[in-house]
Amino acid sequence: FIDQHRAALIARVTNVEWLLDALYGKVLTDEQYQAVRAEPTNPSKMRKLFSFTPAWNWTCKDLLLQALRESQSYLVEDLER
């Protein structure tokens, strides 16, 4: 899901800070967390977050999807259609 809908997630996720907090310490290191937060816009934050995903396994991507479902369920539901 995460890889399949990358472009839509970059464009449409609005609550990136919540995602970062949910992933911090589980998937994201402090350095990665700070790097994403330093980006000026939500799309650039999501691009930076996605720059780390090639090194993630399915469990990490599932944690991101779970966080998306909790914070932006309407968006996930729309993309699952």
Rank of each mutant, 00 (worst) to 15 (best):
Phe1Asp: 04
Asp3Ser: 06
Asp3Ala: 03
Asp3Pro: 00
Gln4Trp: 02
Gln4Leu: 09
Gln4His: 10
His5Phe: 06
His5Cys: 09
His5Lys: 05
His5Ala: 10
Arg6Asn: 08
Ala8Thr: 11
Ala8Pro: 00
Ala8Met: 09
Leu9Glu: 03
Leu9Cys: 06
Leu9Phe: 03
Leu9Ala: 01
Leu9Thr: 01
Leu9Arg: 01
Ile10Lys: 01
Ile10Gly: 03
Ile10Gln: 04
Ile10Cys: 05
Ile10Tyr: 06
Ala11Arg: 13
Ala11Glu: 13
Arg12Cys: 09
Arg12Met: 05
Val13His: 01
Val13Lys: 01
Val13Gly: 05
Val13Asn: 01
Thr14Cys: 04
Thr14His: 05
Val16Ser: 02
Val16Phe: 00
Glu17Leu: 01
Trp18Glu: 15
Trp18Pro: 15
Trp18Leu: 14
Leu19Ser: 02
Leu19Lys: 01
Leu19Gln: 08
Leu19Ala: 10
Leu19Met: 03
Leu20Cys: 14
Leu20Ala: 10
Leu20Asn: 03
Leu20His: 01
Asp21Asn: 10
Asp21Ala: 07
Ala22Gly: 08
Ala22Phe: 10
Leu23Glu: 04
Leu23Lys: 05
Leu23Val: 05
Tyr24Asp: 12
Tyr24Leu: 13
Tyr24Asn: 13
Tyr24Ala: 11
Gly25Glu: 11
Lys26Ile: 13
Lys26Leu: 08
Lys26Ala: 09
Lys26Thr: 14
Val27Leu: 05
Val27Gly: 08
Leu28Asp: 01
Leu28Gly: 02
Thr29Ser: 11
Asp30Ser: 11
Asp30Val: 09
Asp30Gly: 06
Asp30Pro: 11
Asp30Asn: 09
Gln32Thr: 07
Gln32Cys: 04
Tyr33Asp: 10
Tyr33Asn: 08
Tyr33Ser: 09
Gln34Pro: 02
Gln34Trp: 12
Gln34Ile: 02
Gln34Cys: 10
Gln34Asn: 14
Ala35Phe: 02
Ala35Pro: 04
Ala35Cys: 07
Val36Ala: 08
Arg37Trp: 09
Arg37Glu: 10
Arg37Ser: 13
Arg37Val: 12
Ala38Gln: 12
Ala38Phe: 10
Ala38Gly: 10
Glu39Arg: 04
Glu39Met: 12
Pro40His: 12
Pro40Lys: 12
Pro40Gly: 08
Pro40Val: 07
Pro40Leu: 06
Pro40Asn: 08
Pro40Thr: 11
Pro40Ile: 09
Pro40Arg: 12
Thr41Ser: 11
Thr41His: 00
Thr41Val: 04
Thr41Asp: 15
Thr41Gln: 07
Asn42Asp: 11
Asn42Lys: 03
Asn42Glu: 09
Ser44Cys: 10
Ser44Thr: 13
Ser44Ile: 08
Ser44Phe: 02
Ser44Ala: 15
Ser44Val: 00
Lys45Gln: 04
Lys45Val: 05
Lys45Glu: 02
Lys45Asn: 06
Lys45Pro: 02
Met46Gly: 00
Met46Arg: 05
Met46Leu: 10
Met46Cys: 00
Arg47Pro: 02
Arg47Val: 12
Arg47Asp: 07
Lys48Asp: 03
Lys48Val: 07
Leu49Pro: 04
Leu49Phe: 02
Phe50Ile: 08
Phe50His: 00
Phe50Arg: 02
Ser51Gly: 06
Ser51Leu: 00
Ser51Tyr: 02
Phe52Ser: 00
Phe52His: 05
Phe52Tyr: 13
Thr53Tyr: 15
Thr53Ile: 13
Thr53Glu: 12
Thr53Phe: 09
Pro54His: 11
Pro54Leu: 09
Ala55Met: 12
Ala55Lys: 14
Ala55Asn: 15
Trp56His: 09
Trp56Ser: 02
Trp56Lys: 04
Asn57His: 10
Asn57Ala: 09
Trp58Glu: 15
Trp58Gly: 15
Trp58Gln: 15
Thr59Gln: 15
Thr59Asn: 14
Thr59Trp: 14
Thr59Ser: 13
Thr59Gly: 14
Thr59Glu: 15
Cys60Met: 15
Cys60His: 15
Cys60Ala: 15
Cys60Arg: 10
Cys60Pro: 05
Cys60Ser: 15
Cys60Ile: 07
Lys61Asp: 06
Lys61Val: 05
Asp62Ala: 13
Asp62Ser: 12
Asp62Gly: 11
Leu63Met: 14
Leu63Gln: 11
Leu64Pro: 00
Leu64Thr: 07
Leu64Phe: 15
Leu64Asn: 04
Leu64Gly: 04
Leu65Pro: 00
Leu65Phe: 14
Leu65Gly: 05
Leu65Val: 13
Leu65Thr: 09
Leu65Asn: 06
Leu65Trp: 12
Gln66Phe: 04
Gln66Lys: 13
Gln66Met: 11
Ala67Glu: 07
Ala67Lys: 08
Ala67His: 03
Ala67Gln: 04
Leu68Phe: 07
Leu68Arg: 03
Leu68Thr: 00
Leu68Ser: 02
Leu68Gln: 01
Arg69Asp: 01
Glu70Asn: 10
Glu70Thr: 12
Glu70Ser: 10
Ser71Trp: 01
Ser71Val: 08
Ser71Gln: 11
Ser71Lys: 06
Gln72Leu: 05
Ser73Gln: 14
Ser73Ile: 05
Ser73Trp: 10
Tyr74Lys: 15
Tyr74Cys: 15
Leu75Pro: 04
Leu75Val: 08
Val76His: 00
Val76Phe: 05
Glu77Thr: 05
Glu77Ala: 11
Glu77Asp: 13
Glu77Cys: 05
Asp78Trp: 12
Asp78Ala: 10
Asp78Gly: 11
Asp78Met: 11
Asp78Asn: 10
Leu79Trp: 00
Leu79Ile: 08
Leu79Pro: 01
Glu80Trp: 08
Glu80Tyr: 06
Glu80Val: 08
Glu80Ile: 11
Glu80Leu: 08
